[in-house]
Simulated scan of single mutants.
Amino acid sequence: MRMRNKPWAMEFLNENSNIVDTDGSYSGRIGDFFPESRPLHIEVGTGMGTFITELAARNPHINYVGIELDKNVMIRVVEKILEAELDNVRLLLLDAREIDTYFHKDEVERIYLNFSDPWPKNRHEKRRLTHETFLSKYRSILAEEGLVQFKTDNRGLFEYSLGSLNNFGMVFHEVKLDLHADEPEDNIRTEYEDKFSAKGNKIYRLKASF
């Protein structure tokens, strides 16, 4: 999700360094970023932050890390964290390709991928967050029995992801081809999800482990 550039974005994020790591200060020691030691879940690509902040509010016993590369988008996520007074959400201004160097092996219990860029052109396949290159990184940081949860409205990307995860040897625990037809209680809608669903698009979701 791209937003208009805000010249003051980095200044704002650095003023909230108790919530946002903009320079890798907590690389290798993410536990120090939280007031309490709790199980760790991460979302790769936060959007406007509705998903991760609602998830954190529902589950105060879990620490959540949102990874986002767009500093302008992250401003709104910080605002939502402050508004909700959440102490179990932290943000990283980080390229997803670097997550396996930021987190320790087996440190993360769940990874959420919500409405990721589909990168439809074949030459951009390696940029898809369910490409084997990323799956290898997820495997290195996920704890035993850790889960990857993926959600999209893009049928082509979902079909690609099913094949990619299957070829990587992952085990599927859930595959939903119309998530909203019988919406489970654990589903938290993102901004994109509401937008696409209102247009009549089906929402797809899977959960899988290595």
Rank of each mutant, 00 (worst) to 15 (best):
N114V: 05
E132A: 03
I62L: 09
G66D: 06
E145F: 08
V171E: 07
W119D: 02
L206D: 00
N201F: 15
A143K: 15
R38T: 15
D100C: 15
E68L: 04
L142T: 10
M10S: 08
R127F: 07
F150A: 00
Q149R: 09
W8S: 06
F158H: 04
G49A: 03
K207R: 04
A56P: 12
D153E: 05
S27H: 11
A9R: 05
G45L: 04
N14L: 11
K207N: 01
L165D: 00
G156W: 14
R76S: 09
P60T: 14
P184I: 13
D153C: 11
W119T: 03
I62F: 06
G163W: 00
R4F: 13
A56Q: 10
F150G: 02
K207C: 01
E183M: 14
V108Y: 12
T50I: 13
I188M: 03
R127V: 09
F33C: 13
K137Q: 07
K195Y: 13
L94M: 05
Y160M: 00
S17A: 09
E109M: 13
E68M: 07
V78G: 03
F34H: 05
L94I: 11
V108C: 10
S116R: 01
R127Q: 07
D95L: 15
I99S: 00
T50Q: 12
A198Q: 14
Y138F: 05
I99V: 15
G24C: 09
D100A: 13
N59A: 10
M48K: 10
N88S: 15
I203K: 00
L69A: 14
D178M: 02
R2H: 11
R127W: 07
